[in-house]
Amino acid sequence: MNSEFFWLRYLNFEEKVVKLTEYIAFNDEQKTVYSPYIADLIIQIGVEIEALSKEVFRKYGGQWDSDSYPQFDKDCLSYLEQSLSISKKIVNIANPLIEFSSSKLYPFKGFNYTGARAKNWKKAYMALRHN
């Protein structure tokens, strides 16, 4: 897949999240809000993170045992951390409708944690996907 495909998918998700701000206040008090629409977004975005991490893993020369498929977090993201320091990459929230206490997110910081220490997005994605 080419990068244009992933960029268009990203823009689509960004539009959906911004549209969601019409219905839910994006602030610290609302972090635990649940809706089936948000659950679907978490799954869709998680699938994209998996696909993109595997694509970039291959592009940057990641190798894996031919008897198994690389796992996005254990294999791909770990390799991308070594190659690209993804845990240090920052997402700056610039939309005035999104008012979290921090306007900077590090979505891959601690990506390799499991259980209670796992990133909230990863825990939510895995729970929705597997349960």
Rank of each mutant, 00 (worst) to 15 (best):
T114Y: 06
K104H: 06
E55Q: 14
K109V: 09
D28T: 10
K54G: 13
T21G: 10
L41G: 07
S53Q: 01
P70T: 01
L41K: 04
S85F: 07
F72A: 08
C76T: 01
I42Q: 01
L84A: 11
K31Q: 10
E15M: 07
E14T: 08
L80K: 03
L80W: 03
N95E: 11
Y10M: 06
R9D: 13
F26Y: 11
I38C: 00
A116P: 07
A25F: 02
G110L: 05
G61C: 07
G46L: 12
E22V: 03
D40Q: 09
P107M: 09
T114W: 05
R9I: 14
E55T: 14
R58C: 08
G61E: 06
R58N: 11
K31W: 02
K88Q: 12
Q82M: 14
Q30L: 05
Y69C: 00
V17A: 12
Q63H: 02
I24V: 15
N95K: 07
S83V: 15
S66G: 02
L8M: 06
Y69P: 00
N92M: 04
S35W: 08
N27A: 13
F100P: 04
Y23E: 04
F111M: 02
S3V: 14
P107Y: 08
P96D: 13
L11V: 03
Y34H: 11
Y60A: 09
T21Q: 09
N95S: 10
L97K: 15
K89S: 14
L84H: 09
A51D: 05
A25H: 03
L84K: 10
P70G: 05
L80E: 06
F5R: 09
Y106F: 08
I93Y: 06
K109D: 14
T32I: 12
K59T: 05
Y10K: 10
R9L: 15
D67F: 02
L105D: 02
D65P: 01
K59I: 06
D75A: 05
L20T: 06
P70Q: 04
I93G: 09
S66C: 10
K54P: 11
S83W: 01
F108W: 12
L80S: 05
W121A: 02
Y60R: 14
N120T: 03
K54L: 15
F111K: 01
K74Q: 07
T21P: 03
W7K: 15
P107N: 11
A51L: 06
S102P: 06
S85D: 13
I43A: 04
V18Y: 13
F6V: 10
L8K: 14
L84Y: 06
K16C: 03
Y23A: 03
F57N: 01
N2E: 12
A25V: 00
I90M: 11
K59H: 05
T21Y: 05
K119M: 03
I43E: 09
V47T: 12
K54T: 11
I43R: 08
A118G: 04
I86S: 11
L97M: 13
I43G: 00
L11G: 02
S87E: 12
G62Y: 01
V17K: 06
S103A: 12
Y69N: 05
F100T: 11
V47F: 12
L97I: 07
G61H: 08
F72Y: 12
L41P: 00
D75E: 06
S102V: 06
S53G: 03
K31T: 11
Q82R: 15
F100G: 05
E29R: 14
V91G: 02
E29H: 12
